[in-house]
Amino acid sequence: MMAYIVVAALLIGDVLAREVVGIPILGSQSIAVLGAIVAGFVGLSLATASGSHLRPAVFDGLVPSSLDRYVDRGSDLIAAAFYLAIAVFAVRFVLESMSAGDRAAVLYFPLWPIQMVMPYAFLSCAIRHAAYAMEPALKVHHEAAA
């Protein structure tokens, strides 16, 4: 949420600075974009937490409903493993970015501290699913089916 307030404040600040004071804030747009990226990844883990990602339910009927509990636990286990793997690759990406010196446009500061949001988001998804696999009661139930 803070990310969005920062984004909006930067954009409005830019308008005010330009129209009222007459001096533009150089790079405000690119910082605003970074804010939106952070918000996007935080949103990914929020969406996972609330179970609001869409889920195709085409094969749900294949398993007798008595076994549903086990399939659902397996599902969370697989998702946890998947996000953990992606988190590992995200860490590797951030390390590469750090050693290559990826920079933000205009202001040239290094991007890796902001890119840390990616491993964080994936790891938090992994932990969430792992917790669901161990304790299914934690799950919030409003999954949409597609």
Binding site: L54, R55, F59, F82, E143
Partner: peptide, 16 residues
């Protein structure tokens, strides 16, 4: 098919 069977959501499915 495996991911569908194990009830993965669209994000996991597409990313995988």
């Amino acid at each position: 098919f495996g991911l569908l069977f194990f009830r993965q959501n669209i994000v996991v499915l597409l990313l995988a």
